[in-house]
Amino acid sequence: MLIEHAGKSPQVDPSAWVAPDATICGDVTVGPGARVMHGARIVGEGGGTITIGQYCIVMENAVVRASPRHPCSIGDHCLIGPNAHVTGAVLGAQVFVATGAAIFHGAQVGAGSEIRVHAIVHLRTRLEAGAMVPIGWVAVGDPAKILSPDRHDEIWAVQKPLNFPEWVYGLDRNTPDLMVEVTRRLSGALAGHAHDRRTET
C-alpha cells in the first residue's frame, strides 16, 4: 500500500512491483524493475527521503527507513534480504544485504559490498567498495574495522565516540533519563502519522 506522509507521496516506477501487503510511506522513489516483496516496510519519516534504484529487490519483512536528518539511498541492483534493516544509510550499486542484517544511520556502503546474515554496519561507518562483513560480525568506524561480535570492548571503543544518541536523536549520551527524552522526542516525531493518507494499494 502507498501512503502519503508529511505531504509527500511515494513515486513508484510503472515497471516496479509492490506486494499488496507491503507499505511504502512518504517521500520514497522506487526505480524501474524494482520489487518490494510481501510485508516489507519502506518509510520516509517526517519528510525524510528514500531512493531505491533500478532492479533493487526488497525482500519479505525488510525495513528501510529515513528521517529528515538521515536520508536513505539504495543504488541500482541491490538486494535487501528478508528481515534486514537499512536506516538512513547510503548503499552503492550491487550491494547484497543478507537476511537479518542491519545498516544504521549515516553508514556508507561501497558498491559491490556484501553484508552477510545478521551482520551489522554501525552508524557513521564507511565500507569501501567490495567489502564483506562476515556472518554475525560488526563493521564500525570510518574507515570500517570489521570485528567478530565477541570483541565488544574493541567495537565499543570505536562506537562510543560515534555517539548514537546525539547522531540519531540529538541528545547527549549523559542526558538525565535519556530513554525518557528519546521516547518523548520520538513519540512527537511519529505523531505526524496520524495525518497519513492512503493514496492507492
Rank of each mutant, 00 (worst) to 15 (best):
G112H: 15
G48D: 10
E166N: 06
M179V: 01
A98S: 11
A107T: 06
M59Q: 11
H38W: 09
W17F: 12
V63L: 11
C78E: 02
V95T: 00
G26H: 14
E128C: 06
V109G: 01
S187C: 10
D27A: 08
A111N: 13
A194P: 14
M37D: 13
T51R: 10
P68C: 10
P20Q: 04
T99H: 14
P143V: 11
V86A: 08
A22Q: 11
V168M: 07
V133A: 09
S187W: 12
A107E: 00
A129H: 09
I3R: 13
A111Y: 00
H195K: 15
R197E: 15
A194M: 15
I57Q: 13
L162F: 09
N83L: 10
G47R: 12
R65M: 09
A102N: 08
P14V: 09
G112M: 05
A131K: 00
V18G: 13
Q54P: 09
E128D: 10
I42L: 11
G26A: 12
P14Q: 07
V86S: 04
A189P: 12
A16R: 11
L178T: 01
P68F: 09
T201L: 08
V140E: 02
I103M: 03
G88S: 06
D196V: 10
S187Y: 12
L91M: 04
S148D: 05
G75R: 05
D76K: 11
F164N: 00
N61I: 01
I80G: 02
G106H: 01
L91R: 07
V28L: 09
P161L: 12
A139W: 01
